[in-house]
Each structure stands twice: as C-alpha cells, then as structure tokens.
Amino acid sequence: MPAVNAIGLTKADYKGAPSTLCQGCGHNSILSQIIAALFEMSVRPEDVAKFSGIGCSSKAPTYMLSRSFGFNGLHGRMPALATGALIADRTIKGIGMSGDGDTASIGMGHFKHIIRRNMPLVYIVANNGVYGLTKGQFSATADKGLRLKRQGENPFMPIDICMEALASNATFVARTFAGDPKQVKALLKAAFHHKGLAVIDIISPCVTFNNRPDSRYSYTWAKKHEIPLHQIDFVPPEKEIWLDKGMEPGEIRDIRLHDGSVVVLKQVDKDYDPTDRFGAIKAIEESYKQNVLLTGLLYIDPEAPNLFEILDLPEEPLNRLTEDRIKPGREMLDQINAEMFAA
C-alpha cells in the first residue's frame, strides 16, 4: 500500500502527464519536490492552480498536478496571467513555473512588477543559464565566458534573479539547487505558506546544453560550491515546534508566517539575518567574490500586505459572486443619470 497523507491522498494523486524533459534535467527533480511538498503538507490538488510561460521550465507544469487547473500561456507573461486568474479565487494557491529566459529576458518587466504588487504566488525560476527548448542559446543568466556550440563565448554579465527580486522589494527570496532536494522541498513549503509573492531561484542544470563541469549551472560545479546559509525546516501551523537536542541557543532562528506556520533555520550563520534586505544583497555579492553558490532563504518579510488586501477583495471567491452582488441596482443608474449635465 502506498503511503497516504492526512487527507487520504497518495503521491500519485499529485502527478501529471509523463515528463518529456531530458533525463536528468533539473526541472524533473523540481517537479518531484513540488509533488512531495504538497503531498506532505496534505494540500488538495484542487486547491492549487499552475501557470507558466514558454520554455522547458514552462512545459513542466504539465508533468505534475493533473487534478489542478493549469494555464500554459505566452512567453514571459506568466506573472500577468497568474495575477488575473488568481484574483478570481483567493482560496486557490498559485504556482508559477518560469525559467531564466522567461523571467530574466522577455518577462523581466512582469517579474519585477508582480514582485512590486506582492501578488500571492509561488514564483519558481528553474534557472539553467541557457535556452533549452530552442536548443542552446545564452540566456540572460548565463555566466560571462560561457561557451556554447553555436554561440561562441558569452561576453555579458549575468542577471541575478535574487538580486533583481531584492531590488524590487520582494517579500520572500530564496535560492536553491535542484541537486539539493531536501532544501528545495523545505523552501517550497515555506513559500506555500508565505502570504505574498515568493521567489525561488532554483539552479536547475541543463544536462544537454549547459552541463560542463566548470559551468555554474552544472551539477558538478554546483554540488562542489554550494554553501547553504542554514538548514531549513518548515513547521505547519498545527504542529508544535521541536528542536534538535543538543543545539545551542543562537544556532536556531524561527520565522513565524502570517498563518501561524514557522520556518526554522538551523545552524544559522550568526551574522546572517534573513529579514535584513541589505544584508541579503551583500551576501549575494560576497558569494560572487568567493565563487560559491549561496543557497537558502535569503530574505523574508512575512507581514507585508499582499495584492488581495491592497485591492480590498472579499475573502470569498470573486468568481462565485452572484449577479445581485456585481450588478448595481436601477436606482444607482437613476442617480448617476441625474448627476450628468442635463438641460
């Protein structure tokens, strides 16, 4: 018998169509962790909706959560599409699946603006520094000096997704590595319980076009150079927080989210404060100097108002409001007509 979760579902209930991505593609591993996270948190697939743009990353939503609504839209426009859709029903949790081409090039404007609006959405960037679906062009996150078969050498500096997110006042910024499934899953769980927009930049190696051992986006390099900021655990609202025995005070930091769940950071770098935006920016900058892949929850502001609150929407789904609640009465039109300039 396969394991069932608290709502009686098995992992199979969270699956999608068979993946057509390359064997070994980091994206497949991200999909497994999304499925595992939702399964473990006992989230009903019907309470989730998935959105994507165009690219290998954006094909991925097909391969998970076939019981959820999904919309695979246009290249770069996932943030806009998801914003419009999710406003229709606040009780649905959105997953936006994007890539480095989708987010850091064609959709950069939308990425920055959905952050600015703090739209409730788990925004995943499956980041491999290369265009895979069109067979191997540089993306905007590609390392300077990267060599590709038909492209020569990349002469430009890369865009850093987390830096961009922080610059736009994101309220949840994390970086992780598809080869570190435990951390990916923990961050996903925390992101699901964040009330606003959660950006997770996941280094997700492209085994076909960008997997040379010296590439920052390869399994080999990332495994060797990953420096986790902390060990991260997620504790759902209904559970008591338990601590590892023998841990010294100061080695743990817990961040309470708006719904009562807690993100627990263990073995924290004592100087690192994930609520300090400037500190996060500095840490990323340092990681470049040290040539390491800094992973973990870089920044969080659990209290910032989200777009639903800013728009003053009712708690119940807007798309279920009946006609009497969305069509003003005749007397209102009479009033308005009377206010117009008349003879």
Partner: peptide
C-alpha cells in the same frame, strides 16, 4: 502586454 494577459487570466478564471 501585461494588461491583456491579466485580463485573459481573469476571464479564464470566470471574471467579467
């Protein structure tokens, strides 16, 4: 671009 894509998302999800 965002304006129309948002409206499409909303229309798809059952909003006028």
């Amino acid at each position: 671009l965002a304006a129309i894509n948002m409206a499409i998302g909303a229309g798809w999800a059952g909003l006028r």
